[in-house]
């Protein structure tokens, strides 16, 4: 890797990381406002115009809250859990392309090597991109289990147990739902999968791999513990589940990890199933239009998550497991078999 490529990667890291942070704080506000709209309320609208400064106020508030360390807690695990959670949440974005490749404009003040250079808004284009995402997601589960165990609180413990069981079983469905699209694209690279969906709209995996789409959307919701799968923190049963004892910035980190995971899932749905930055019109759009289309798709998925939360009650633990093992995994498995057969006979795409 040249120094130039390294510099570009560093800039990308800073930009993408902060874009995520911004999106996270924006999401907390948007979620509250959208939910409020669905529930005939106003939501936070006092801090700044339209309540835009509410995330800032929340951040300041959380910073100045007292850090509570419960008696009898395992300090090591208690401190480590939020860190693991946030690191795993942010690692996944390293291999995700956040838009089509584009040429930098050529302005006079730019160094020669930047002028007109082709940039892919992706930090690292790993050969095994999807597997990497899958792996860091799996490590993220340990954070929740650790948090639940270390806090020495019975509700936290139950929450931790629930989430470990839930994550392990839904990760299986989640991984299986990807197999079909990997076979269709013939690559683990997220960028390749998006490019495989170029062309008319029926080339999107949403249509090519509809069962996988449904499975992934459901398993993804479960993976980020959103309603109706928010059992690990099932408020009315387990108070706040695994993060009952967390306060101040540690609480904020856990919240942040959850939101970032949610954003990652939404981004992946847009990239893997909704054609990413392709418009589905049969021709390649200019990069900016493609990027906006991509953002719109991510926004729609995020809205869908909020909508779910505003509509559905929570599953019961055993029903959730039944649903995962008896419905989602068989669907995903059958989908793999059918796709494999079709690919073998007809070839990719």
């Amino acid at each position: 890797m040249t120094l130039q490529a390294l510099l570009i990667a560093l800039v990308l890291i800073v930009v993408i990381f902060h874009a995520h942070l911004g999106l996270f704080s924006g999401m907390t506000l948007i979620e509250r406002r959208v939910l409020a709209f669905m529930q005939f309320r106003l939501g936070p609208n006092r801090t700044g115009p339209f309540g835009l400064l509410q995330p800032v106020a929340d951040g300041i508030k959380l910073f100045f809250k007292e850090e509570v360390m419960p008696e009898g807690a395992n300090k090591f695990g208690f401190f480590l859990a939020p860190m693991v959670a946030i690191v795993c949440a942010f690692s996944a974005m390293a291999v995700i392309p956040y838009g089509p490749a584009f040429h930098l404009p050529s302005f006079g003040f730019m160094p020669e090597w930047l002028r007109g250079r082709l940039i892919t808004p992706q930090i690292a284009d790993l050969e095994i991109g999807l597997l990497f995402i899958f792996a860091v997601n799996a490590v993220g589960v340990y954070a929740i289990v650790m948090a639940g165990w270390a806090a020495n609180n019975k509700f936290s413990l139950l929450g931790g147990l629930r989430s470990s069981a839930q994550m392990f079983s839904y990760e299986l469905a989640l991984g299986l739902s990807w197999v079909g699209i990997i076979m269709l694209a013939g690559s683990f690279k997220v960028g390749d999968i998006v490019e495989a969906q170029a062309g008319p709209i029926w080339k999107w995996n949403l249509f090519m791999q509809f069962p996988a789409f449904v499975v992934y959307l459901i398993a993804g919701t479960a993976e980020v513990s959103r309603l109706p799968f928010d059992l690990p923190e099932g408020e009315t049963e387990l108070v706040a589940g695994f993060h009952t004892e967390y306060s101040s910035m540690k609480f904020a980190l856990i919240q942040m990890a959850e939101y970032v995971n949610m954003i990652t899932v939404a981004v992946l749905v847009a990239l893997l199933f909704l054609g990413g930055w392709h418009l589905g019109l049969g021709f390649a759009a200019p990069p900016l239009v493609g990027f906006l289309a991509f953002l719109a798709k991510v926004g729609a998925i995020l809205f869908f998550f909020i909508w779910l939360r505003g509509t559905l009650p929570r599953f019961r633990y055993d029903q959730l497991m039944d649903f995962g093992w008896k419905i989602l995994i068989p669907i995903a498995a059958i989908n793999i078999l059918v796709t494999a057969g079709l690919v073998a006979f007809l070839g990719q795409r």
Partner: peptide
Amino acid sequence: NVVDLGAITPFFVVFR
């Protein structure tokens, strides 16, 4: 009752 099940929206609906 449904708030206990995690669905908050019906609660606000009936409050109207």
